[in-house]
Computed example of a mutant assay.
Amino acid sequence: MKIESVIARQSVDDLEGAIPFYERLTGRKAERFEFAGVHLASVGTFLLFCGPDEAVSRIAAVTATLTVADLPSAVEEAVAAGATLVMPPQPTPNGHRAVLRHPHGGVYEYVGP
């Protein structure tokens, strides 16, 4: 398995107010979308999000998003190495995702085609 990129997650109180800072920091334009009742913006290597506390807490519980070229293989390899499958691979608006807890406690979202 090769992790292609790591996306840092950041909860914000005001998504539209936060976006200009991250656009300037990364030199990238924000891509806005919604998922599970949360408003999100992907800006370079950052994923900003805000929304109702209950929905945000589910998103914030994940340490980071890891992009991989082959999601099923990455999940299989991580589990074989000691990770626990929290959520099996499933489709999303941007591809597919799975959530795994690494042996040392971190919870990560894996995304891929």
Score class of each variant (00 low, 15 high):
78 A>E: 00
106 G>C: 00
85 L>E: 15
1 M>Q: 04
49 F>E: 09
97 R>E: 14
77 E>N: 13
99 V>H: 12
17 G>H: 01
35 F>C: 02
96 H>S: 09
73 S>R: 14
14 D>N: 12
100 L>C: 09
22 Y>N: 10
78 A>Y: 09
80 A>W: 05
68 V>Y: 06
60 A>C: 10
100 L>P: 01
47 L>T: 08
63 T>G: 00
22 Y>C: 14
54 E>L: 13
9 R>F: 01
2 K>L: 05
17 G>F: 07
31 E>I: 14
81 A>F: 06
108 Y>V: 15
22 Y>I: 10
63 T>I: 03
56 V>T: 01
82 G>T: 08
26 T>Y: 03
41 A>C: 08
103 P>W: 05
73 S>Y: 13
15 L>I: 03
3 I>S: 00
55 A>I: 03
81 A>D: 11
53 D>P: 15
21 F>A: 02
64 A>V: 15
43 V>T: 13
29 K>P: 03
73 S>G: 13
32 R>V: 06
59 I>L: 01
5 S>T: 14
25 L>S: 03
77 E>K: 12
15 L>Y: 13
31 E>F: 11
107 V>W: 00
8 A>V: 12
86 V>P: 02
30 A>M: 06
29 K>E: 15
79 V>F: 05
56 V>Y: 02
71 L>S: 00
62 V>M: 11
96 H>E: 12
56 V>Q: 04
54 E>K: 11
49 F>L: 10
70 D>A: 06
21 F>Q: 00
100 L>W: 04
50 C>F: 01
69 A>V: 01
28 R>Q: 15
34 E>T: 14
38 V>A: 02
44 G>H: 05
10 Q>W: 08
80 A>K: 15
101 R>T: 13
74 A>F: 01
104 H>E: 07
75 V>I: 10
30 A>F: 07
32 R>F: 06
23 E>F: 12
24 R>C: 00
21 F>G: 00
76 E>K: 08
26 T>I: 09
71 L>N: 04
32 R>A: 08
100 L>Q: 09
2 K>M: 08
47 L>Q: 11
28 R>G: 01
85 L>K: 11
82 G>E: 02
71 L>A: 03
68 V>L: 04
59 I>S: 07
57 S>P: 06
5 S>Y: 07
15 L>D: 06
32 R>G: 00
23 E>I: 11
80 A>P: 06
84 T>V: 14
108 Y>M: 14
68 V>D: 03
97 R>Y: 01
91 P>I: 00
50 C>Y: 06
76 E>W: 03
